[in-house]
Amino acid sequence: MFTIEHDFEATIITLIDEGTPFLQGDITINAFQDCITVEQVDPQTDRLQRITISMTQLQELQSALNLPEGSYRVAEDPE
């Protein structure tokens, strides 16, 4: 299950783990104009963990999900 909310500065996506035995905490993704943040509460410390991804990194991640094992460089679009 997931939710999508549009806030003033960001689009907020929350992924809710509804699977069986080994459930993970909810993941919140904040999509800003210049970066993406991914947040999850660490159950051992009860502290919020956050990573920030640049838009370039996000595009590379999107490409990587559909490629076989290897090393790649995303070509820049010529203008």
Rank of each mutant, 00 (worst) to 15 (best):
1 M>V: 08
1 M>R: 10
2 F>G: 04
3 T>E: 12
4 I>T: 11
5 E>N: 14
5 E>W: 03
6 H>P: 00
6 H>C: 06
6 H>V: 14
6 H>L: 10
7 D>T: 13
8 F>T: 14
9 E>K: 09
9 E>T: 09
10 A>Y: 09
10 A>K: 13
10 A>W: 03
11 T>P: 00
11 T>S: 07
13 I>D: 03
15 L>A: 05
16 I>K: 09
16 I>E: 09
17 D>R: 07
18 E>P: 00
19 G>R: 06
20 T>L: 09
21 P>Q: 09
21 P>R: 10
23 L>D: 13
24 Q>K: 15
24 Q>R: 15
24 Q>A: 15
25 G>M: 06
26 D>V: 04
28 T>N: 02
29 I>C: 13
29 I>F: 11
30 N>Q: 12
30 N>P: 00
31 A>Q: 06
34 D>Q: 10
34 D>C: 00
34 D>R: 06
35 C>K: 14
36 I>E: 01
37 T>W: 03
38 V>A: 11
39 E>M: 05
40 Q>E: 12
40 Q>S: 10
40 Q>F: 03
41 V>Y: 08
42 D>C: 07
42 D>P: 00
42 D>K: 01
43 P>K: 02
43 P>H: 03
43 P>I: 02
44 Q>D: 15
45 T>Q: 07
46 D>L: 14
48 L>F: 04
49 Q>V: 11
49 Q>L: 13
51 I>K: 07
52 T>F: 01
52 T>Y: 05
52 T>V: 08
53 I>C: 00
53 I>G: 00
54 S>M: 03
54 S>R: 07
55 M>F: 04
55 M>Q: 14
55 M>G: 04
59 Q>M: 11
60 E>K: 10
61 L>H: 05
63 S>V: 00
63 S>Q: 09
65 L>R: 08
65 L>N: 06
66 N>F: 07
66 N>Y: 07
68 P>E: 06
68 P>C: 05
68 P>Y: 06
70 G>A: 01
70 G>C: 04
71 S>W: 02
72 Y>S: 00
72 Y>V: 01
74 V>T: 08
76 E>Y: 06
77 D>T: 09
78 P>G: 01
78 P>S: 04
